[in-house]
Amino acid sequence: MTEFTAHISPIVLLDLSLLTMLIIVAFAMLRSRHLFAVVMLSGIYSLLSAAFFVSLDAVDVAFTEAAVGAGISTVLMLGGMLLTARREKPAAKDRAPVALAVVLATGAALIYATTDMPAFGDPNAPANDAVGQRYVEETPNDIAVPNIVTAVLASYRGFDTLGETMVIFTAGIAVILLLGAGSGRGGRKVVDRAPSDEEAQ
């Protein structure tokens, strides 16, 4: 295992400030009892993590996070909030130590698991053993797309991505069919006909 040397570059400082803000937002979401504030803060959390993913070069993950996290789920959570109360009820105090213990144990297990991961940029890591090296070397000649992840998703695994898109498209159509057209405006009014005497027998 090679020694990790930290370079204090502007990007590292930027990552540090993004991560600090993520922690602040997470604690503010935990502390707040005002549900609308929590929804807005979760949108901000998604924007921050999307910016962090961009700085990690995971552009496709960042796209998804920004569209789903900051866009769709904010609106969905606002819609859910309309159906419930505006403020969160305070939780029972005697349950807090159990929850804290579970969270701490899970966190400790996850951190322990990271010690088995290969070092960042290790050329002998399993991810670099297989076709990864070939993608890195051949992408400029084969596809000429500057981002290798994009090249892998859209060209090397193009049929896989097409299948995923079809699955999501089918799911979307199924949901629209189940909810009925115009459900966003409350849908059509459906009145159950009272059974006639012959049917009731």
């Binding site: 866009g71 904010t74 609106v75 606002l78 819609g79 309309l82 966003g184 405006r185």
Partner: peptide
Amino acid sequence: TGTLAILRFFSYRTPSR
């Protein structure tokens, strides 16, 4: 789009009216 959706949500109680 997100901000528009939130604001319309508050003036019309639904994002798609």
